[in-house]
């Protein structure tokens, strides 16, 4: 399959990329890893008149911790993320997520920024970033703005990014003491999107009560979902399987999946419940080991 014709513009700086987006507006699409965009262009689900290739824009591919924040550049490849010692040691939930995205060949090109900016509720990083209460940094003609992850996902394939903005960075709060997170994905086969998946993040106080809880769900709604009632049910409580089962039930109730080839809605809701329970268990074991 051959995509429709387009004009190709290669940006060599972020300013140039933004200027190109300003010039072409809604007719342009940013090309990052291209592992979702190019397949969509082949199916003519996307027919941009102009492609702005940002792959050679320097400075967008770093992973570092500073001022109590983890900063992930928008162009960081999934392979780089899953192999990063900093990510594996300090943010294993992000490594969990990166290594179940598509397959190793796709992950050599696919980027974290693209995974979020695509706005696909089936993508994996959104749930994890919801659980971690991340922020997204967008650069546009008037400079930089920071968007809370809760405000970022607007609708299916629609984010808070303006047509002339580029996602340059994801910021994640550094893990507090006694905290841990995990991502659990159920897929029919390697490389598929999730039937349902759950990200969970927990922090405990000195008395071992839960002081922070984050739960995000993948592919069970029209957009990535925060299971807020489930989070609230955990706060102030001592962790236990019974508590986690109750929270997982609340998460399943928040899920609103549609029946398709990956299964009927009720089945997906049950998978969301199980994935939430297992993610909470694993998050707890990591928090206890931290």
């Amino acid at each position: 399959m051959i995509p429709g014709p387009f004009s190709y513009r290669r940006a060599t700086s972020i300013e140039e990329a933004i200027a190109l987006l300003q010039q072409y507006g809604g007719d342009a699409k940013v090309l990052s890893g291209g592992q979702s965009l190019i397949p969509m262009m082949k199916f003519r689900l996307a027919e941009p008149a102009v492609i702005v290739d940002i792959n050679r824009v320097p400075g967008l591919d770093t992973i570092e911790e500073r001022n109590g924040l983890l900063s992930i550049g928008g162009l960081v490849r999934e392979t780089t993320l899953e192999r990063s010692p900093l990510i594996r040691q300090r943010y294993p939930i992000i490594a969990d997520t990166a290594e179940v995205i598509a397959d190793p060949l796709v992950r050599n090109l696919a980027t974290v920024g693209g995974n979020l900016a695509h706005g696909d509720p089936a993508n994996d990083h959104p749930a994890t970033m919801l659980a971690l209460r991340a922020e997204v940094v967008a650069r546009g003609p008037s400079g930089e703005r920071v968007i809370s992850i809760d405000d970022f996902f607007v609708d299916t394939f629609t984010t808070a990014l303006a047509p002339d903005e580029i996602l340059t960075e994801i910021r994640v709060p550094a893990p507090p003491p006694r905290s841990g997170g995990a991502y659990m994905k159920f897929e029919r086969k390697v490389g598929d999107y999730a039937v349902a998946a759950a990200a969970a993040f927990l922090a405990l106080d000195e008395a071992r009560k839960i002081v922070r809880a984050g739960i995000g769900l993948t592919n069970v709604s029209y957009k990535p979902l925060r299971a807020e009632a489930a989070e609230n049910a955990l706060l102030g409580q001592a962790p236990s399987d019974e508590l986690f089962r109750a929270a997982a039930e609340l998460a399943a109730q928040a899920a609103d999946p549609t029946s398709d080839l990956r299964g009927p809605a009720e089945y997906k809701r049950a998978v969301a419940r199980t994935m939430t329970f297992r993610a909470l268990q694993k998050a707890l074991s990591r928090a206890q080991a931290a």
Binding site: Y8, R10, Q35, I38, P39, D53, V106, N108
Partner: peptide, 18 residues
Amino acid sequence: TVLWNGRPVKSCTVFAVQ
């Protein structure tokens, strides 16, 4: 699959201009 700058990628999902 081909190696592009040493990394295996799916060459049906890369534009030649890239």
